[in-house]
Write a protein that binds this DNA or RNA. Structure first.
Lengths: 252, 252
DNA sequence: TCGATTTTGTTCTCACGTTCACAAGCTCCT
DNA sequence: AGGAGCTTGTGAACGTGAGAACAAAATCGA
């Protein structure tokens, strides 16, 4: 097999920068699909095959891949292993990323036990909590350490990614500490909007929001008639006050 | 997904009678912000206040709210309680939704313990697992039941939402069972693409995808030079095979 | 070598989402 | 009453994303 086209350094648009966000968000999905195909012993796959495995349509998949370069072969398809490596490299998971988890409640426990941290490419270097009663507890092959050790750990282990699994209350403070310590990417599970300085990336995972989105569509499905009628004027102290604390929940 | 073929150019997709998907996804965030304001004793808020609390810009917030109706007062702002109720009603969380959780591993445990299921509007009616060793275990005030009882539970409790927290392997089968039993909305935590018939809504939460997206941006930040050079030819049995099972992890 | 066949990479067009900017509308003050 | 000052609701401009369609490359067979 010969390279489709010789790419010299400085060649046209190898789009080293400028992959659209929507595409970036799908690359991990493609990566997983490729791994599955690889595990099934499949060496070559067409955009159609891949698209099916990833749950998207083939035109979109081809366009996404075209941002990375020309890694397919016309008339043939994509070499599974090769493409997998290219995507992994583009995402950055050919190297290990050190991760700290802050807040060892139910969810923190679950993540800590997440076998192999799900996929490799990520390595949990510390589980932190401010609760004295938790510090010292053994989870898998790790031991919960005091949140006060954060700065030291981040510095010595070159940690760039932090996961926040605290309740909503302390989340912003934890976030600030993480940022001050040098963490530049944060995955937030606390049900609160965190503010971070420019240059720090933040992503949020929120169970109750997901459920509410489902509920909206569910409501549409089960008869529009089920919609309660709108009180036309602000009935502030009547119906409204009966509403339970919707949307204000405490952390996982 | 969108049935309406007769649409004017420029008009956003409205689900049935109105609200764009992107807006629906933000309504729960506004709801939470409103609840926070309400808890702080604030009775009225401008779009600017609200936008800040929700982490969006005010123009977007106003446009989003305009899809629901005209619930603000020009020159004044929004009545917090009134708007909160209107959004809750639109989403459908003024009523309770029955939820089953399937797969009581680490994550299932965490979700089951999620106090009050985070926000009300949702009520866990059963924790299910196929593992004999887990069935009967007490979690909070619930007891793990056998997955075989699914159909019965869904029917008697009018369950419309299912949460899948199994490993990737059994996820599709669990999904099929849920759908067959009458569940029409599914929240999937298993790292696999599920296929469902039309009419069933599915949303996915995937930790490792979130981390990979962060890693991509992180890689960009820490010097572009850090990018390993591209092997020009498909080095299929060399470098590539060393790649660990990126992206193919087992479930939480 | 040439043509048939397959499948990628890309272009073109339309739909969707975000943001700007401002008229409409409300309150308060004089 | 009338004007000043705010803030909402929305029309229009702009940018991003999705999908259809097709030309360009690669393989295969005669």
């Amino acid at each position: 097999m010969t390279p489709a086209r010789s790419r010299r350094p400085g060649a046209p648009t190898r789009t080293e920068r400028g992959i659209p966000e929507a595409t970036v968000a799908r690359l991990p999905v493609y990566l997983r699909a490729l791994t599955a195909l690889s595990d099934s012993g499949i060496a070559t796959a067409s955009s159609e095959d891949l698209a099916t495995a990833a749950g998207v349509n083939s035109a979109k998949l081809r366009k996404d891949l075209s941002y990375l370069g020309s890694y397919g072969t016309r008339g043939v398809g994509y070499d599974v292993e090769y493409l997998r490596y290219q995507i992994a490299r583009e995402i950055g998971v050919t190297q290990d990323w050190a991760v700290v988890i802050v807040g060892i409640g139910n969810l923190g426990h679950a993540l800590a036990n997440y076998s192999g941290f799900g996929t490799r490419g990520f390595r949990i270097v510390a589980l932190l909590d401010a609760d004295e009663n938790l510090v010292g507890e053994r989870i898998g092959d790790m031991i919960v350490r005091d949140f006060a050790e954060l700065e030291e750990i981040v510095a010595s282990d070159r940690v760039s990614i932090g996961v926040i699994t605290t309740p909503a209350g302390p989340a912003q403070e934890v976030c600030d500490r993480l940022v001050a310590a040098g963490v530049t990417s944060i995955l937030n599970f606390a049900p609160v909007v965190l503010s971070v300085p420019a240059g720090v990336d933040i992503r949020k995972v929120d169970l109750s929001i997901e459920l509410q989105i489902l509920a909206y569509h569910e409501q549409r499905k089960s008869g529009e008639a089920a919609l309660p009628e709108v009180p036309e004027l602000p009935a502030m102290n009547g119906v409204v006050t009966d509403l339970p604390s919707v949307g204000g929940g405490v952390g996982l």
